[in-house]
Amino acid sequence: DISHQPPEFVRQHFPTIHEKLLGLGIDMTKGPIPVVPAQHYTCGGIKIGLDAKTDLPGLWAAGECTESGLHGANRLASNSLLECFVFGEAAAKNILECWDTLDDPPAILAWDESRVTDSDEEVVIKQNWTEIRRFMWNYVGIVRTTKRLERAAHRIRLLREEVEDYYGHFRVTTDLIELRNLLECANLIVQSALSRKESRGLHFITDYPVTDPVARDTVLIP
């Protein structure tokens, strides 16, 4: 609520959002703005060193996607932007230092698509994509329960079977690859959440509302 400020101040400082809200019938100069929580990206996952290097040869990472240790159990928006600058520069420096010693990428194997066809069922990909978004928001959102996480895990198993069947019959597309990646990420998030029997940072689970006295890493060990 910023209605305590003069209308001209609001219009001058927030012209875009003021105009957008007026189109929705909301005047932020006269009353509060309704808000809802939104998902905040991946909250890390790829382990890196101070040089932004991962344990996969030829891969460096920086920003929201990493687990650098700078954020503890929470992901703060402004901090993650600064992390992009710091680790982006670290990655560039390290790449330049070892550029001449990097191995050539391996040859890509010949691809046999003689037994697959172009798909006339691409609506399946869009449907699965939408379903992942929905159940991850509803079951794996801000407040979690073991029951909801188990429901999400069940849906992921079913969708993986569908996607693998689709993958084996039709030509590969970027949308299909991204769908597989989404499922892998969703599965890692759910399995990590199920393995953590406490609430910490932005992982709050009603079955285990207390934070353990000793922090334990979330990285899954096969």
Rank of each mutant, 00 (worst) to 15 (best):
N74A: 11
N74K: 10
R75Y: 03
R75T: 03
L76E: 08
A77R: 13
S78M: 07
S78K: 06
S78H: 08
S78V: 11
N79I: 11
N79W: 05
S80K: 02
L81T: 05
L81Y: 08
L82S: 14
L82H: 14
L82D: 10
L82C: 07
E83H: 07
C84F: 09
C84T: 13
C84P: 03
F85K: 10
F85M: 13
F85H: 12
V86Q: 05
V86M: 09
G88T: 04
G88C: 05
E89Q: 14
E89I: 13
A90W: 02
A91E: 00
A92F: 07
K93H: 09
K93R: 15
N94Q: 04
I95E: 02
L96M: 14
C98L: 03
D100C: 07
T101M: 07
D103H: 15
D103A: 15
D104I: 05
D104V: 04
P105A: 15
P105S: 10
P106W: 10
P106L: 11
A107E: 14
A107Q: 12
L109M: 09
A110I: 04
A110M: 09
A110Y: 07
A110D: 08
A110W: 05
W111E: 13
W111F: 13
E113A: 10
E113R: 06
R115Q: 08
R115A: 04
T117C: 07
T117H: 11
D118Y: 10
D118N: 14
S119A: 08
D120H: 15
E121P: 03
E121A: 13
E122F: 06
E122S: 06
V123H: 15
V123Y: 15
V123E: 12
V124M: 12
I125K: 00
I125H: 01
I125Y: 00
K126V: 07
K126Y: 05
N128W: 07
I132F: 02
R133H: 14
F135Y: 07
F135A: 01
M136W: 02
M136D: 01
M136Y: 02
N138R: 14
Y139M: 03
Y139P: 00
V140P: 00
I142L: 09
V143C: 05
V143F: 12
V143K: 09
R144K: 06
T145R: 05
T146A: 04
T146M: 04
T146H: 04
T146I: 06
K147C: 04
R148W: 06
R148I: 01
R148M: 10
L149F: 03
L149T: 00
L149V: 03
R151E: 02
A152S: 11
A152T: 06
A153P: 00
H154I: 05
H154R: 12
R155M: 03
R155E: 06
I156S: 00
R157A: 14
L159E: 01
